[in-house]
Structures are given as structure tokens and as C-alpha cells.
């Protein structure tokens, strides 16, 4: 597949979610990912974006740039860039998923999904921007989920 890059810039607000997910879906649709993998990618994009929408720009408005790039051997890189407060999702603690209803906290799951489901996640802070890359290889085969 030839290298191909597409980007959009959206307002860092929940009202941008649908448009952002539609952008990702239309880019990834014909890349050879199966439907389960497409859904996982969509989920992780939502989780990263909602986190930015909620926390990156406290008390002010801001923007998010979303880019999709195809690389060698069907590699898809989704890069999400904001100019908000520094936040490295890779350094956040994982939630304890073994706790019961009473003990279970409501936060932290979205980032956990990203770390669990994407093949590779990279973060860097550059020119006062948070740059998050999610890299996935399209093999036509989804990572199996344990059905036990």
C-alpha cells in the first residue's frame, strides 16, 4: 500500500467526537483490518479524544489534530496532537479490574483500553504539544480475545 496521509483538525469538545470517529472509520475501512479490529481502533480513538476533550484545556477551548498514515506492510499510524496541558497516557496507573462493584472506581478504563488493545502506543511532548501515536499492523487477523 502506498504511503498516504490524511488529517483533520477539530475543536477539543465532545461535539467533535462523531466527526472524528467518522474520519478514522473512512480512512481505515479498506485497509484490511477485520471488523473487530476496526471497532477496537475506533474505541481507542474515542478514549484518547474524550480524555483530551475533558482534560487538556481546562477552562478554555482548544484544538486537536488527528492524522492517519499508512506505512509499509499495511501499518496504520494514528497520531493525535493537542496543545493542552502535558499528559503522558503511558505513565498513568492501570485500574484494578478485579475489584467488585463497591470498590471499583469509575475512571481510568479508557486509557487502559488503549494500552491493552493497540499494537504500539508512543507519546512525546514536543513544542508544547502532546503527540500520541497508535500504531497497528493490518494483518487481516485480529488479536484474539480470550473467550474463557
Amino acid at each position: 500500500m502506498d504511503d498516504n496521509v490524511q488529517s483533520i483538525v477539530v475543536l477539543a469538545h465532545l461535539s467533535s467526537l462523531q466527526k472524528s470517529v467518522a474520519f478514522i472509520s473512512s480512512f481505515t475501512r479498506n485497509m484490511g483490518f477485520d471488523s473487530r479490529r476496526l471497532s477496537e481502533i475506533e474505541l481507542c480513538v474515542e478514549e484518547v479524544l474524550v480524555n483530551i476533550f475533558n482534560y487538556a484545556y481546562p477552562g478554555e477551548s482548544g484544538e486537536v489534530k488527528i492524522s492517519c498514515r499508512t506505512g509499509p506492510e499495511g501499518t496504520l499510524t494514528i497520531e493525535i496532537v493537542d496543545s493542552g496541558i502535558p499528559f503522558n497516557i503511558l505513565s498513568s496507573d492501570d485500574p484494578d479490574i478485579s475489584l467488585n462493584i463497591d470498590e471499583r472506581h469509575v475512571g481510568g478504563l479508557g486509557i487502559y483500553f488503549v494500552k491493552q488493545l493497540m499494537d504500539r502506543v508512543e507519546y512525546r511532548r514536543e513544542n508544547n504539544k502532546n503527540i500520541l501515536s497508535m500504531i497497528n499492523k493490518s494483518t487481516g487477523v485480529s488479536r484474539p480475545v480470550d473467550k474463557s
Binding site: S35, R36, S39, E40, L43, L109, Y112, F113, L117, V145
Partner: peptide, 10 residues
């Protein structure tokens, strides 16, 4: 499908 997977992972 995806809903079942999300329940599992979480």
C-alpha cells in the same frame, strides 16, 4: 462482538 470484548477486557 465488540461489546462482549469490552466487558471482558474491563
Amino acid at each position: 462482538g465488540p461489546v462482549k470484548d469490552v466487558f471482558k477486557i474491563s
